[in-house]
Design a protein around this nucleic acid. Structure first.
Lengths: 144, 144
DNA sequence: GGATTCCCGACTAGATCGGTCGGGATGGCC
DNA sequence: GGCCATCCCGACCGATCTAGTCGGGAATCC
């Protein structure tokens, strides 16, 4: 019931990117230092995020990564799902033909309900929200 | 973001036990058949549940397992936590000294919030609730 | 004392996690 | 065209975890 370290790194990377001036791309190395992430491992992760359509990259001098969408359109759930291959799934822990005993349905349904609540929250939790949360002043400034 | 198969088996076992006549203990083998759980594996699991204070056992002919608490006092969270060694923990995925970048706190706090919601729900979800859910009639009978 | 049932530690094959390594492809600059 | 920066990408690897299996011991009851 955790996310992988990889997914955690991915979240950090996106947050770091989102919290930096958008006028120039950021290099892997800089992200690695800021986030405390092993460089070569981060490379893999960024590649996955790129393939998932969240990031865009540029090579050569002055190259690096930047977001491909506004922060309000990137969700935590999206990132976790992309990296770990899915979100919360308590209900069917790798099962096909479920045994049928008294209470089996209740159990399955109850767990599914938790899954749905968690996942819908994770999918609605945006990077924008996370950054705003870090600086409550900004929210006041916008009169929110 | 799943529970282990072991925890899933544990949940089934408890539900099976809770959904059976409480006048006589149930044997491991019967539970294994009903729940579709490998016998020797289930043995280990039941032992853990017993050590955790959820079950009580009796040896010899006519022996077996039975619950040690009323179903309304056994929660899904309790069982998962006992077997898997913890509940939902998205926030600190094995980390100590957190890196401090812009948005780091917001990220951590947002994930913690999800953790808390999930865990409090899992701890409040009782076996009684699961069984009642399986047979909505019973709830009507009690005028709930 | 023998049948039945739980108790319990040791072992294991395979998957997954959390990376590392080495080099290739591409873009920009002179 | 040469060179450097930077991203791209597949192969590999040790440690840990998962999902069990195995074999026998201990209590209980007749």
């Amino acid at each position: 019931m955790t996310i992988s370290r990889k997914a955690d790194y991915a979240l950090r990377a996106v947050v770091i990117l989102a919290g930096s001036p958008p006028d120039r791309p950021m290099q892997i190395q800089e992200m690695a230092e800021i986030g405390g992430i092993p460089l070569k491992f981060l490379e893999q992760i960024l590649l996955m995020l790129k393939r998932g359509g969240l990031l865009r990259s540029k090579r050569g001098v002055g190259g690096g990564y930047h977001l491909d969408k506004p922060t309000r359109q990137i969700s935590v759930g999206e990132i976790i799902s992309l990296i770990d291959g899915g979100l919360c799934n308590l209900a069917s822990s790798g099962h096909e033909a479920e045994a049928e005993f008294r209470g089996a349905r209740g159990l399955r349904d109850s767990l599914s309900e938790v899954d749905e609540k968690v996942n819908s929250r994770l999918l609605s939790l945006t990077i924008e929200e996370i950054l705003n949360r870090d600086e409550p002043d900004a929210m006041l400034a916008f009169g929110i």
